[in-house]
Design a protein around this nucleic acid. Structure first.
Lengths: 223, 223
DNA sequence: GATGGCTGGATTGTCGACATTATTGACGAT
DNA sequence: ATCGTCAATAATGTCGACAATCCAGCCATC
């Protein structure tokens, strides 16, 4: 088995840079500049841009180059809706086929989440949140749904803080996750899907609120 | 407004060729050959292949070139499951916001479908089926979900005959579509989603059956 | 006969050069 | 001042050539 080149390849490097926010939305990505910055040829950058365009992280206009894709508020909500539908499916499947090991790991994550909430560590909670969902994807064993859900998550990443850091959100989120876990534990597909959909519906509501708030000029971020 | 170049571009041409079955699954796509066939340069073909790879119609292995992606039976089922989830969402939204015009068009399609079923025109029915779903996407006004559902449909196209031409399938399919339409007509989101999910679940069952049948050597296609 | 390395042909990957296309800013006419 | 024209510049799009890689068939060896 061959170990893949760590991350010298342009696609992963550029993808990481975009997802981690090193480029602003709508920022232009000039091929030559990007190529130099990552120490690869322009050819590789071009290929990466095409992929990222198809993936929705970049927009590519003929003869006008590439920009980091700007996700509108409306689109962010759409993305979360689709994620809700997909994660519902994944939760259902996970409830059907989760192994004892899967459940054990999930239990652990839940308990760590509880801890983080108690000490008010919203960022740590957010990481565990991601981990929780990923464990479900693994248990569900449904590559098609998982791949699409992953792509969507990357696109919406810019909005995650607007929900995660909302005061009081973590507590409710924890309850929702516990409900999901309980359904998985008892291998209850309908329950798991319903709990997951409830959860994502809450996220969407929170996001909608946050967006409306921002639009009205409200400021709630620390600092 | 600018009219886009009809289809001289490699991506659309190649995509069309693959979706319409001019290349077999697993067939190798040699860049030079494809380029010549479509009268474009190798560069354009390369770009097209990268896009199609990301889109799931082609697999691209480093240094080993491109092949038409072979969708396994298992994956076809997965794709239909995801489509079910997405189309459920779309149906829900369509029920919420379908205009009188949308409903009028849908009514028309349904009545043509009825006609086709009566005269046993399975292929004509299949076309109307596609049209029906597309009208729902339009009414739902949800670009994100519609785009993804469209991509999935392209991937699974090879399997559509295995359900559509199954004897007796058309009648039941018609009933299911009528149920969906009734829910849309009364602006009943829950009902529309449920009806759509039932419909896709039936499709999946049929597909599962067809696959098992083929595996046992059964032949049911005309000719 | 099976195994393992070698070689030639075919194919993909990359680079640099150049053509094509947008964009910017200056300049002059109205 | 405003608009349109036009040249200068910067970036993208395309091509051909070459390097790197893979693969099939051949041959020597056991």
């Amino acid at each position: 088995m061959r170990v893949r080149a760590p991350r010298s390849d342009a696609y992963h490097q550029l993808r990481e840079a975009i997802v981690s926010g090193q480029f602003h939305p709508n920022e232009r990505l000039v091929e030559a500049a990007v190529a130099q910055r990552m120490g690869v040829g322009r050819t590789a950058v071009r290929a990466a841009l095409v992929r990222l365009d198809q993936e929705g992280l970049v927009t590519l206009e003929p003869n006008r180059g590439a920009r980091v894709r700007h996700i509108s508020d409306r689109e962010a909500l759409e993305i979360e809706e689709v994620r809700g539908a997909l994660e519902g499916l994944l939760a259902r499947r996970a409830a059907e086929r989760a192994t004892a090991d899967d459940l054990q790991e999930l239990r652990q994550v839940i308990s760590e989440m509880r801890e983080r909430v108690e000490r008010g560590d919203a960022l740590g909670y957010s990481e565990l949140n991601a981990r929780f969902h990923q464990l479900i994807w693994t248990a569900a064993d449904h590559p098609t749904a998982a791949r699409i859900a992953g792509d969507l998550k990357s696109q919406a990443i810019r909005f995650q803080y607007q929900t995660a850091l909302r005061p009081g959100r973590a507590q409710r989120s924890l309850h929702e996750h516990e409900a999901i876990f309980n359904a998985l534990k008892t291998h209850d597909p309908d329950g798991a899907e319903a709990a997951m959909r409830d959860h994502l519906a809450e996220v969407i509501d929170t996001l909608r609120w946050a967006i409306d708030g921002l639009r009205r000029g409200e400021r709630w971020l620390p600092g």
